[in-house]
Design a protein around this nucleic acid. Structure first.
Length: 430
RNA sequence: GUGGGUAUAGCUCAAUUGGUUAGAGCAUUGGUUUGUGGAACCAAGGGUUACGGGUUCAAGUCCCGUUAUCCACCCCA
């Protein structure tokens, strides 16, 4: 090992400097303020859970390969959370009898997955989770859809650049069981192929299905399925609950006037706990962001892993990295300035205490104030304030103190006035 | 986990194809009569050329390994 410590962050993680933090906070503020506007409440869970929580749900290789898990000093097998849903289900199951339904909860938190880092994918990332518990009907879906679109509007995203794609796991089950009559093992593989349909291309897709030993009839059934529209669903409405739900769902989205949403038969969403509606949102205005912006679905059965009765649930997760990529693609990140409102220069060390007391006064009144700490050349102090994009500079030297006034300088216009402290505060606050 | 590309200053890139002391722009810091910023000009700091080994009289340049990053798989909770 080398003696010198590396300044690089751990593989697949990134440092966030104050400048980047402004963007991050902007995105998170939109997420959470719109959530509160809809009546969602914030909650949190520990970063560490028992490994069993994740194994119970998935059981397969995800837990062994992509989970950060280890044994603690007490011999417990624990893991850093790779997602929120199991923890959320856990805390709800724990207090199921005392919680008033429905629950509309959200959280913004960090997650860790042992992945090979790529663009839009890191080992440490932040996700927004929004979930509704206790609504068995499609109103839960509609509430979430409206939230998602409200967020996109808040980001000022252009309508032609995003699309929410919706499918239903019961419809997929109908395809697998009633039309194709597949074994469990093949369901998973065909499902994955369908998920990859647009990426594979039609020919590679057909070839892959044939490798899975699907006969010609089955292959053409899958291809036909992928072209299905809502009209086609009406023909099988009496046979598939998934079809019925989708028809009803889209009737309501239309009544609500929701756009940027459509039925898409190839949406799969993994293979784990989803029970009905599944959703993904995509950037459709460019080719720069091929990954889903967000994904989610209904998971009515998840509480059963805690030995509880079923509780209807619908929710989704939205990743920070891909959102930021999306916003950058369309130049939707506003130019953000520091939160500091006013800068107080210092002409002479003798004035330090005086300036500090003024600053204290300003801060008491809720004005974010930064002061010059050492008396360097005034031009450089202004340069500093200018570089940090602080909108106001309050200049106080001997002359101003004698006049019992302050010079208030607007850094954008360069305008400067000799005013009383009260007048200055008024101007800064407005 | 598999396959491939890349790695030179904080950032974007040079370096006559193996040949002196590795350069430039931007950024940073200071200066251009120290109570007025953004521009311009001047100057400075900043590099074990990712790390380790090898070939060679000579390596930023060629070879091997490691690490990181990007792309495609795998997976995507």
């Amino acid at each position: 090992m080398e003696n010198k410590l590396s300044t690089s962050p751990y593989k697949g993680t990134t440092d966030t400097y104050p400048q980047d933090m402004l963007n991050r906070n902007y995105m998170f503020d939109v997420w959470s303020s719109v959530a509160r506007r809809f009546g969602f409440e914030e909650y949190d869970t520990p970063l560490i859970e028992e490994t069993a929580l994740y194994v119970a749900k998935s059981g397969d290789e995800i837990a062994s390969t992509q989970l950060y898990n280890f044994v603690d000093k007490g011999g417990r097998d624990i893991a850093i959370r790779p997602e929120m849903t199991p923890s959320l289900a856990r805390i709800i199951a724990a207090k199921k009898n005392e919680l008033t339904l429905p629950l509309k909860w959200f959280n913004i938190g960090k997650y860790y997955r042992y992945e090979k880092p790529q663009k839009g994918r890191r080992r440490e990332f932040v996700q927004l989770n929004v979930d509704i518990f206790g609504i068995p009907t499609l109103e839960a879906e509609l509430e979430i859809f409206q939230y998602i679109f409200a967020v996109m509007e808040e980001f000022k995203a252009l309508k032609e650049t995003y699309e929410l794609r919706v499918n239903n796991r019961y419809l997929l089950n109908y395809l697998f069981e009633e039309i194709l009559k597949l074994s469990e093992e093949k369901k998973a593989k065909v499902g994955r192929a369908i998920d990859n349909y647009s990426k594979l291309g039609k020919e590679a897709f057909i070839e892959y299905l044939k490798e899975l030993e699907l006969n010609d009839k089955q292959v053409s059934s899958v291809l036909e399925f992928l072209t299905w529209t809502l009209e086609d669903l009406k023909k099988i409405a009496d046979k598939s609950e998934g079809a019925t739900q989708l028809i009803e769902l889209f009737a309501k989205t239309e009544e609500l006037g929701l756009t940027n949403i459509r039925f898409e038969p190839s949406i799969m969403r993994g293979l784990l706990y989803y029970t009905g509606t599944v959703i993904e949102m995509f950037d459709i205005g460019s080719k720069e962001n091929p990954r889903a912006l967000l994904g989610g679905g209904r998971y009515d059965d998840l509480l059963t892993i805690f030995g509880e009765e079923k509780l209807p649930a619908f929710g989704f997760a939205w990743g920070d990295i891909i959102l930021e990529d999306y916003l950058r693609t369309y130049d939707l990140l506003p130019t953000l300035r520091t939160e500091t409102k006013v800068f107080l220069p210092l002409f002479d060390t003798k004035l330090y205490t005086y300036i500090q007391k003024i600053a204290r006064d300003l801060r008491t009144k809720g004005i974010n104030t930064e002061t010059q700490l050492t008396a360097i050349k005034f031009g450089n102090q202004l340069k500093y304030a200018s570089k940090k994009n602080i909108p106001w500079v309050m200049i106080i030297g001997e002359d101003e103190i004698n006049a019992k006034k302050v010079q208030l300088k607007n850094m954008e216009t360069g305008e400067q006035n000799l005013v009383t402290l009260e007048e200055a505060i008024e101007a800064i606050k407005s």
